[in-house]
Write a protein that binds this DNA or RNA. Structure first.
Length: 323
DNA sequence: AAATTAGGTTACGCGAC
DNA sequence: GTCGCCAAACCTAATTT
C-alpha cells in the first residue's frame, strides 16, 4: 500500500536521526506486530501505523530532495537533479543564442557587431557544454559515493571509479547509456581492479539499475577503456568472508592454500570464483577442526549449499586428504 | 547437517537474419 | 541490433541418508 499524503501521522523522529532507526527496529520483537497495521510510507519505509515504529528503512533514498508541503509541490519537485530528457542535456534551461545575424528588430548587424556576436556564441557554447558535463559528472560521482558507502568500499577505490567515469565521459562512452548504469559499472570495475571485488550481485543490490544492464555496460566500458578483464582470483574473497564468519586466521590461510593448490590442478576453470572461495573456506574449516556448516558459509558468500558441495570434495581430494 | 536428485534459470558465444 | 540456439554452471526445492 502506498500512502502518499498523510497529514495525520506524526513522524516519530527527526530526519537527522535516520541512522538510528534500524537499530531500534531490530531490538523490538516483531512477532507482536499485526501485519495489517503495517503500511508503506511515501518514503518507502515500512511503518507500524499505531506506534509510528519504523520496521524497515528503505536503503535507497528515492524521496524528493526538497521538502514539499502540498501535493502539487510534491509533483513538481520530486526527483530534482536527474535528467528528464536525454535529447537535450540541459532541458533547454540555459540561454541560447541563435545563428542569424539580425538584431531583435530584424535588422542586419554591422560587421563589428557580427564578430562580437561570433565570439559570444563560441564562448557561450563552450560554457554550456562544459557545465553539462560537470553536472553529469557530479550526479555520477554522488551516485558512486552512495553505492560505495553502502557496500563499505574504501575511499581509494572510489577515486579509481571516479577516474574511470571521467575517462568514459571524455571518450564519449556514456551516450545512449544511463548515468546510473555507467556509475555502477565503473564501481564494479574499480573494485575488481583494486582487488577487493564485490560480486555483481552485491553491487546490483545497491544500484538502481538491473543486473543485466550493469553487466553489459561493464563489458563495454572495460573494453573501450582497455581495462584488463582478468577473471577474479577467488582468494580475494577469502578475507572478507572469513571475517564475517568469525573464524581463525588459520582457517583463512588454509583456505588460500586450498585455492592455490586446487586451482593449479585446473579445478577452477569455468567455475565461479565466489563458489570456489566459499567451498575452500568450508574445506579449510573442516581441516582445521573449526567446522562451520555449509549453510553458514553459503550465507555469507551468497551462494547455495549445493554449489559448495559441488566444489569442496574435489578440493579436498586435490589436497590429498581423501585417502 | 549433509547428500542426492530433478528441473528451471542464466550468461555467453555463435551465426543468421 | 536482436533473435534463436547451445552447453555449462548455478539455483530452487524436495527428498533421503
Amino acid at each position: 500500500m502506498i500512502v502518499t499524503n498523510r497529514p495525520s501521522y506524526q513522524r516519530p523522529r527527526q530526519k537527522t536521526e535516520r541512522s538510528d532507526a534500524k537499530e531500534t527496529a531490530e531490538t523490538v520483537d516483531e512477532d507482536e506486530i499485526d501485519p495489517n497495521e503495517v503500511i508503506r510510507t511515501a518514503d518507502g519505509e515500512l511503518m507500524h501505523e499505531p506506534t509510528g515504529l519504523i520496521l524497515e528503512d528503505d536503503q535507497l533514498d528515492r524521496g524528493p530532495e526538497w521538502r514539499a508541503f502540498t501535493q502539487s509541490e510534491r509533483d513538481s519537485k520530486s526527483r530534482v537533479g536527474a535528467p528528464t530528457t536525454q535529447a537535450m542535456h540541459d532541458k533547454g534551461l540555459t540561454t541560447s543564442i541563435d545563428w542569424k545575424n539580425k538584431d531583435a528588430d530584424g535588422r542586419s548587424l554591422s560587421s563589428k557587431k557580427r564578430s562580437k556576436m561570433h565570439r559570444l556564441r563560441k564562448w557561450h557554447e563552450r560554457i554550456r557544454t562544459k557545465d553539462a558535463g560537470e553536472r553529469n559528472l557530479q550526479f555520477a560521482l554522488s551516485e558512486i559515493d552512495r553505492m560505495a558507502s553502502a557496500l563499505g568500499i574504501p575511499r581509494p577505490v572510489r577515486e579509481v571509479a571516479s577516474v574511470m567515469y571521467r575517462q568514459a565521459l571524455n571518450d564519449d562512452l556514456i551516450r545512449g547509456r544511463s548515468i546510473e548504469g555507467v556509475s555502477t559499472a565503473v564501481l564494479y570495475a574499480a573494485c575488481r581492479q583494486e582487488e577487493i571485488p564485490r560480486s555483481l550481485k552485491e553491487v546490483t543490490e545497491v544500484s538502481r539499475v538491473e543486473n543485466k544492464e550493469i553487466a553489459r555496460t561493464y563489458r563495454y566500458i572495460a573494453q573501450e577503456l582497455g581495462l584488463e578483464m582478468r577473471p577474479v582470483d577467488p582468494k580475494q574473497y577469502v578475507p572478507r568472508f572469513c571475517s564475517r564468519l568469525d573464524v581463525s586466521e588459520e582457517v583463512q590461510v588454509k583456505a588460500g592454500e586450498i585455492i592455490d593448490v586446487s586451482a593449479d590442478q585446473g579445478l577452477l576453470s569455468g567455475k565461479s570464483p565466489i563458489g570456489f572461495a566459499a567451498a575452500a573456506i568450508y574445506s579449510a574449516s573442516l581441516l582445521c577442526n573449526e567446522k562451520k556448516t555449509q549453510a553458514e558459509v553459503s550465507a555469507v558468500a551468497n551462494v547455495t549449499e549445493v554449489t559448495i558441495r559441488n566444489r569442496y570434495q574435489e578440493q579436498l581430494r586435490a589436497m590429498g586428504v581423501s585417502d
